[in-house]
Measured scan of single mutants.
Amino acid sequence: VSFKITLTSDPRLPYKVLSVPESTPFTAVLKFAAEEFKVPAATSAIITNDGIGINPAQTAGNVFLKHGSELRII
């Protein structure tokens, strides 16, 4: 599955597209996205474009099915 993750704390709204296997734990996606944007993973969260928080204790495939591919990291 592929996710387009936007960094909301930067006024330029940079984004990265990450492709991972469906079975990947979403905690790993969060950690990798945080490292890519050089923000601390421990204090970061991934939310939907509607501002709904995503529980990272599920697979990337589940997140994709529930929330789609466009996400934000805060």
Rank of each mutant, 00 (worst) to 15 (best):
V1Q: 02
V1F: 05
V1S: 02
V1I: 13
S2C: 09
S2N: 06
F3I: 00
F3N: 00
F3E: 00
F3R: 01
K4T: 10
K4I: 05
K4L: 03
K4F: 03
K4S: 08
I5T: 00
I5H: 00
I5F: 14
I5Y: 01
T6A: 10
T6W: 04
T6P: 02
T6D: 03
L7Y: 12
L7I: 04
L7S: 14
L7T: 05
T8F: 09
T8K: 10
S9E: 11
S9V: 09
S9Y: 07
D10H: 07
D10R: 04
D10K: 04
D10T: 05
P11Q: 03
L13T: 08
L13M: 07
P14Y: 05
P14Q: 10
P14M: 10
P14N: 11
P14H: 07
Y15H: 12
K16F: 08
K16A: 12
K16S: 11
K16L: 08
K16P: 01
K16G: 03
K16N: 06
V17C: 03
V17A: 14
V17S: 10
V17L: 06
L18Q: 05
L18N: 02
L18M: 14
S19Q: 10
S19L: 09
S19E: 14
S19Y: 07
S19C: 11
S19M: 09
V20C: 10
P21L: 13
P21F: 10
S23H: 11
S23W: 11
S23C: 11
S23V: 11
S23A: 10
S23Q: 13
S23G: 12
T24I: 13
P25T: 14
P25S: 12
F26W: 15
F26R: 01
F26V: 14
F26M: 15
F26Q: 00
T27N: 05
T27P: 11
A28K: 12
A28C: 11
A28S: 12
A28Y: 14
V29I: 12
V29E: 01
V29M: 08
V29Y: 01
L30C: 15
L30D: 02
L30M: 10
L30E: 15
K31P: 08
K31T: 13
F32C: 14
F32G: 14
F32V: 05
F32S: 12
F32L: 15
A33G: 01
A33D: 02
A33T: 11
A34I: 10
A34T: 14
E35S: 08
E35G: 07
E35T: 09
E35R: 09
E36Y: 10
E36R: 10
F37V: 00
F37D: 02
F37I: 02
F37A: 02
F37Q: 01
F37C: 01
F37E: 01
F37L: 05
K38C: 11
K38F: 07
K38H: 11
K38A: 07
V39Y: 12
V39E: 07
V39Q: 09
P40A: 06
P40R: 04
P40K: 04
P40W: 01
A41M: 07
A41G: 03
A41R: 08
A41C: 05
A41E: 14
A41V: 11
A42L: 04
A42T: 08
A42R: 07
T43S: 14
T43W: 03
T43K: 11
T43L: 11
S44Q: 00
S44P: 04
S44H: 08
S44F: 06
S44V: 02
A45W: 02
A45C: 05
A45E: 14
A45I: 03
I46T: 02
I46S: 02
I46H: 02
I46F: 15
I46L: 13
I46C: 06
I46A: 11
I47G: 13
I47M: 13
I47N: 12
I47D: 04
I47E: 15
T48I: 00
T48R: 05
T48G: 14
N49A: 06
N49Y: 05
N49M: 07
N49Q: 09
N49D: 05
D50R: 08
D50Q: 08
D50F: 04
D50E: 07
D50M: 06
D50P: 02
G51M: 03
G51P: 00
G51K: 04
G51W: 03
I52D: 10
I52M: 11
I52V: 14
I52W: 08
G53A: 14
G53E: 15
G53T: 14
G53L: 14
I54P: 15
I54L: 02
I54H: 00
N55K: 12
N55G: 05
N55C: 07
N55R: 08
N55P: 12
P56M: 15
P56Q: 14
P56V: 12
P56F: 08
A57M: 10
A57Q: 13
A57H: 11
Q58E: 12
Q58L: 12
T59L: 13
T59V: 09
T59S: 11
T59G: 03
T59I: 10
A60K: 00
A60Q: 00
A60M: 02
A60N: 01
A60W: 00
G61M: 10
G61W: 09
G61T: 05
G61N: 10
G61A: 07
G61C: 07
N62K: 12
N62G: 12
N62L: 10
N62V: 12
N62E: 13
N62M: 10
V63K: 01
V63F: 03
V63M: 01
V63I: 04
V63C: 09
V63L: 02
V63N: 01
F64Q: 08
F64C: 03
F64S: 06
L65K: 10
L65E: 13
L65C: 11
L65V: 11
L65R: 08
L65S: 13
L65F: 07
K66D: 12
K66Y: 06
K66Q: 13
K66T: 11
K66W: 04
K66M: 12
K66R: 08
K66L: 11
K66G: 07
H67I: 02
H67M: 04
H67T: 05
H67Q: 06
H67E: 10
H67S: 10
H67W: 05
G68C: 01
G68S: 05
S69N: 04
S69A: 11
S69M: 08
S69H: 15
S69Y: 05
S69T: 12
S69F: 14
S69K: 11
E70V: 05
E70I: 03
E70D: 13
L71Y: 03
L71V: 00
L71S: 01
L71Q: 02
L71W: 00
R72K: 15
R72S: 13
R72H: 05
R72P: 04
R72Y: 04
R72G: 15
R72T: 06
I73C: 03
I73Y: 13
I73T: 02
I73F: 15
I74A: 13
I74G: 14
I74S: 15
